[in-house]
Amino acid sequence: MNDPTQIHANVVVAGVGGQGVVLAGNIIADVCMYYGLDVKKAEVHGMSQRGGAVSSQVRFGVEVHGGLIEKGQLNWIVGFEWAEALRWMPLLSPEGSVFVSTEEIIPPSALKDRVSGMVRYPLELLDHPRVRAFDAPALAKQAGNVKAAGVVLLGALSIDLPFSLDVWNQALTRWVPTKALEINLRAFELGRRWEEKAPVTKPQPVPKPITRQVWLNLEESWCKGCGICVNVCPERIWTLNQKNVVEALSPERCTGCGLCEKLCPDFAIDVLTESTIRVNEEGGSVLWQPN
């Protein structure tokens, strides 16, 4: 594995939209091609603006036939977002290792429900002996921009690979926009020294429960039926009934944004969150509250 022209390995870069996963795969591929290796690259992306999963599989060697990595054949996982990295654990070879950022980016799909803010977000596997987790965004910030966290992880990966620093830097120069190059080169260098530079942190094994709760209170006798709330509510909770008084169709969908309350000219709607609950003790009729 020490001869860069003879190496044969598989790397996965995994993260969420906007982190530069595809770019990182391109840089790895660029470096490999410098050494005359055959490179195959497969990507999953799309819907990435909303925090969706993005991954880039990079296979390289003297000769590579297929683009997809098979079970047990994955040598390195570079996780820009640690939960995304976990998806690839089943493919990891017994000697394989994982560089992962401890950053948590909870995708919308992991939200169990928006009212309570509870999420499904697996955390257990991080104790895996081959996982090297550190705070990449912190190092990127040191380099000058938190967005360079992916390049920090690439720097960490580069220590395990036999390619020379010069070649990595050349690849970075080709792929990174000129105005951000200096920061990225610094980030890469910091990544190579992550063990001394970055505090090793592990995410909390259990996420802090987010207990955001919303109550809706309607003073029907004050409502004049103007319909502002009906149209401003992003969740379309409100409707006007036959008496031309507002009524909650689906209060459980309320996210507590408070738009209806602030734009109600008649003080008819209260959106109560935890901080304002005590006001409700007066005995106003609570329209809806979570279980």
Binding site: C226, E261, C264, P265, D266, F267
Partner: peptide
């Protein structure tokens, strides 16, 4: 309350 302003009157929002 309720105040005398018409349905949908912007004044109510400013008052709020």
């Amino acid at each position: 309350m309720p105040h005398i302003l018409c349905p949908g009157c912007g004044h109510g929002i400013v008052m709020s």
